[in-house]
Design a protein around this nucleic acid. Structure first.
Lengths: 211, 211
DNA sequence: CGTTTCACTATGTGGTCGTATTGTCAAATA
DNA sequence: TATTTGACAATACGACCACATAGTGAAACG
C-alpha cells in the first residue's frame, strides 16, 4: 500500500496544518464573515489559491478548523482531576476548585476556542446549528452532569443545574472575554495567573456550602 | 433664525433616525466589519448613497449609532432604585436585588447594547479605544463605585471590587449572550423574565452575607 | 529513465465592499 | 414668481471578496 511516510505526503500534511492553525487564529479573532481566505493564507505563509486547494470552500475550512480546535479539548479532559472514591469535605472542595482552575486556565491558553465559541454561540444560524450537533451538545451535557454530581456531593448549592452552569461559565469566561477592555480601562491584565486564581477563589467563596 | 420646525428639516431628521436605528441593529448583530452600508440602508428602507450622505463614513456612522445607543443608558439610570437613608438589612437586600433585576432586564431589552459591547470589548483596536474614552471608562467607574458602596453596607462579600464586578457582570450577561446556543441545545429561553429572575435569585443566594 | 501524478501557482470572473461624483427635483427663500 | 438650496438618487471607481481554471515543475513511480 501507500502509507509509508512519503516525503511528498509529509510536506502536504505540514502545509495543511499550517493553514489550519492560521485559520483557527483568524476565525477566532475576526469571526467567520470578517475573516478572509486571503488573510488566512498570508498568516500561514502560503498563496491564497493553495488554501482553496486544500479546503475547497471557506465554510469547509471553518469546519475543519473548528474540529481541530475541539480536538484540544481532549487535552483538557486529561488534565481534569477525578474525585476520590470516599472523599472527605476537604478533598471535595479541593476537587471542585481544581476543576475550576483547569477550566479557566484552558480558556486562557486557548483564546481561539473562547473566541469561536462566543462569536458563534451569540448568533443563530447554520454554523451554530452545525457546531451544536457536532460538539456543543455533548460538551453541554457533560457540564450538566458535572454540576449535578457536584451538587449530590454538596459541593455546589442546590437548584437548577442549567442556571448554575450559566452563572459559573459566565463568571469564569467573562473576565477573559473583556480582558482587552479591562486592560485598557484599569491597566490590570485579568488573564494573568494571579488574577485568574483570585477570580476562582472568589467564585469558590460564593459557591461555598450553605450560607 | 432658522430653527422653526421646517417640513424639510423634520423629514431629514426622521430619515436620519431611521438610518441610525437600522445601523444600531445591524452593527450589533453582525459586528463592525461584517456589517455593510448596503444592508443598513436596506434595513432603513433608503438608498445606500443616502446613508453616506448623512453620515459620511462607516466609522462615523458607527460612532453616532453607539452614541445613540448609550443615550438609552440614561433610561436605565432613572429606573435604578436609590438606597434608603437608614435602611435595615431587609431593605438593603431588596435594594441590591432590584439593581440586579434592572440591570439584567435592561440588557435583555437592549440586545444591541450587549452585542456592540461584547463585540468591541473583546477586540483591541481603535474602536475599543474610542468606546473606552467616550463611554466605557465612566460606566466602569460607576460600576466599581456601586460595588464598593454595597460592600460597605455588607450587601456584597469583601474583596477586590474589580473581580466582583467581573463575576457579577459575567453571571448576569452570559445567559443572554449564549441564549441562542442554550435555546438550540435545551429548548429553554434563558432570556425570558422567569429564567432571568431565577438567575438573579441564584446569584443573590451566592452573594449572600457570610457563609 | 521516461512517464505520470499532484502539490502548488498564475490568472481570471462575477460580485460586493466603502467611497466619490454628478445629477435631479421639490421645498425654502427673496 | 424666479432663484437658490439641499435632501436624495444614479452611477462609477478601485479594492477586495470567495471561488474557478489552466498551467508548472518536482517528486513518485513503472
Amino acid at each position: 500500500m501507500s502509507d509509508q511516510p512519503n516525503a511528498r505526503e509529509l510536506k502536504k500534511q505540514r502545509t495543511r496544518q499550517r493553514i489550519l492553525d492560521a485559520a483557527i487564529t483568524v476565525f477566532a479573532e475576526a469571526g467567520f464573515e470578517a475573516a478572509s481566505m486571503g488573510s488566512i493564507a498570508t498568516r500561514a505563509g502560503v498563496k491564497k489559491a493553495l488554501v482553496q486547494y486544500h479546503f475547497e470552500t471557506k465554510l469547509n475550512l471553518w469546519q475543519e478548523a473548528v474540529d481541530a480546535l475541539w480536538l484540544q479539548l481532549e487535552v483538557l479532559d486529561n488534565r481534569l482531576p477525578t474525585l476520590p472514591e470516599a472523599p472527605n469535605a476537604e478533598q471535595e472542595r479541593g476537587y471542585i476548585r481544581e476543576v475550576f482552575r483547569q477550566l479557566i486556565r484552558f480558556a486562557k491558553d486557548h483564546p481561539a476556542w473562547v473566541g469561536v465559541m462566543f462569536r458563534e454561540a451569540a448568533t443563530p444560524g447554520p454554523r451554530l446549528d452545525w457546531l451544536v450537533e457536532r460538539h456543543l451538545r455533548r460538551n453541554f451535557n457533560d457540564g450538566i452532569k458535572l454540576i449535578s454530581m457536584a451538587q449530590e456531593h454538596g459541593l455546589l448549592p442546590p437548584g437548577s443545574p442549567l442556571h448554575i452552569i450559566h452563572i459559573i461559565s459566565g463568571a469564569l469566561t467573562y473576565p477573559l472575554l473583556v480582558a482587552p477592555l479591562t486592560q485598557r480601562v484599569t491597566g490590570v491584565d485579568m488573564t494573568s495567573d494571579e488574577e485568574l486564581d483570585i477570580t476562582v477563589d472568589m467564585l469558590m467563596g460564593m459557591l461555598s456550602p450553605k450560607s
